[in-house]
Design a protein around this nucleic acid. Structure first.
Lengths: 150, 150
DNA sequence: TATTGTTATACTCTATAACTATA
DNA sequence: TATAGTTATAGAGTATAACAATA
């Protein structure tokens, strides 16, 4: 049983994710965002989201962890957090127009860097193939990746 | 400036890496390995490696963090740790035959799961294209990803 | 004095538990 | 009583600083 001809998927993907994250951080800082704040802005799309717990779950965070993030984003007018009239325990979360502008600007800067990286090291066909395959795997629920029954 | 048609690379890759890691953990546990121990066995190839600091750096760990991992692997006979006769401060690290057997068995099990996942959701051509592109990016030094000068 | 490995300490991030306010 | 959000506390993981041995 000799060494396989390729490295493990995780062994390639996890360090790549770390490097991409490291590349994002200074860009986000320029836009006044932390990684968690950016995750929140990305997830909060046009339509409001009901409850902070749902948001936390959606971005893989603990509900107690995003509270400071949400208050800060609210204080800066990037998101709105209004009590649901139907049930005043829950907060309806939504992007403000300014929040959408900040999110779009940050995302454009990040994807510009990403595209430069891909263009430098991959052929256009390889770039497309990579993104296609990643989008397929990205669309899977996490359990489909973690527990693939034979 | 509207929302881009694709998600950020990092936003797809980081959660995928987390899910793949979660998929590995039970397999590693069956083979009596932690993630750090597995990283060490993967990096310690046929030829011995000079110094623990070099190993730590190679697997993206802190040198103080792998000490317990190395003592444990040494106690179990999976690696050898002999002082360098030329400079008795440094330890020469190498896989033992048993260590290589454990590493190969664990890696085979992991890659079997990975291949099942890819086969279920990607076409053979997509699988090959994904692995090719990942191997290109994996071969880059981390700085090439983090600091792509324009 | 400088360096390898080690130990001890502090810090950051994350999760758990306890609390409040609504229902 | 049950749930959403919040606060306070504890735990895991990680990095920093101090130490012993060798050069």
């Amino acid at each position: 049983m000799s060494a396989p001809p390729r490295r493990d998927l995780a062994a390639m993907i996890v360090p790549l994710g770390r490097a991409l994250t490291a590349a994002e951080l200074p860009v986000l800082r320029e836009h006044g965002l932390t990684m968690w704040a950016y995750s929140v802005l990305l997830r909060l799309d046009e339509r409001p989201l009901r409850s902070q717990a749902a948001l936390a779950d959606a971005i893989g965070a603990d509900k107690t962890r995003i509270i400071d993030v949400l208050s800060d984003l609210g204080d800066r007018g990037l998101i709105s957090r209004t009590p649901d009239p139907a049930d005043r325990r829950v907060r309806l979360l939504a992007l403000t127009p300014q929040g959408r502008r900040v999110r779009d600007a940050a995302q454009a800067a990040i994807q510009l860097r990403e595209e430069r990286l891909l263009a430098r090291h991959l052929t256009p066909a390889q770039r497309t193939a990579l993104l296609d395959a990643l989008q397929v795997l990205d669309a899977l629920p996490a359990e489909a990746v973690s527990d693939p029954e034979p």
